[in-house]
């Protein structure tokens, strides 16, 4: 029986791939869970596009500062050693290759590492992009966290993205509720699968041909 990973388990698995001492930007949504599960053995400096390095967790109730917020506009704190800087410098850090890791959500990822995470084919809403395109092109490693399929069961990992691209050939690794996949010259290579997931079963919910690593393992979140 397939036992998909919970969002927290996926976050734990991502956290394991983030080395001690990294400068990291976590995208809005699922990626923010990563900060909650990184162990105390690692010192990670979190970056926020609105001019924060050394961002800490949400403040206690009643201690919020309406001007100290993260990219998702939620109140946060500053850790000792943290700093504030202006927007242009925040994006120098992103675009200029100074961040070690960017963890992003996605609508679709292609087998060549194309990322679609800013627009769908929904025309009723005005378009909005924020910092998504800068995050995708700049970080040394781009990790994507997403469910393996849409809510109505359509694959999100595809031969080619059908939604508008955020950036081409940028994604290094994808973490879903069903598998951990590397993206490289050979397309998607499955490194790990969730308990109960078979190669045929995974292929059936993926829109691109999969290769499986010779040492394919079951995901251990911790």
């Amino acid at each position: 029986m397939v036992r998909p990973l919970s969002p927290t388990d996926v976050a734990r698995r991502v956290a394991r791939d983030i080395p001690d001492g990294s400068y990291v930007n976590l995208g809005i949504g699922l990626p923010t869970l990563v900060a909650d599960v990184v162990g105390p053995d690692k010192e990670i400096v979190y970056h926020s596009e609105n001019g924060i390095l050394g961002m800490g967790p949400a403040p206690a109730a009643g201690e919020e500062d309406s001007e100290l917020i993260n990219a998702g506009k939620q109140p946060v704190t500053l850790l000792p050693g943290g700093s504030f800087f202006h927007h242009t410098d925040a994006f120098v850090m992103m675009r200029g290759g100074h961040l070690d890791v960017s963890v992003l959500g996605a609508f679709q990822v292609s087998e060549t590492g194309d990322l679609a995470n800013w627009a769908t084919d929904e025309a009723a809403l005005p378009p909005a992009v924020g910092g998504a395109m800068d995050l995708a092109v700049g970080a040394r490693r781009v990790l994507v966290v997403t469910t393996h399929t849409t809510r109505d069961g359509r694959p999100k990992l595809l031969s080619r993205c059908t939604y508008p691209l955020t950036a081409a050939a940028v994604v290094d690794r994808v973490y879903t509720d069903l598998a951990v996949l590397d993206v490289g010259p050979e397309g998607f290579v499955v490194r790990e699968v969730a308990p109960g997931v078979t190669p045929d079963g995974l292929q059936a919910v993926t829109g691109a041909p999969l290769r499986f690593a010779p040492d394919l393992a079951v995901v251990h979140p911790d």
Binding site: R95, V129, M133
Partner: peptide, 24 residues
Amino acid sequence: PQGTLSERMRAAGAGLGGFFTPTG
């Protein structure tokens, strides 16, 4: 894109004619 928005204003303030960026 947000970084391009900020950098386009920076370019204006810095007296530059524009810039090439991989973003977008």
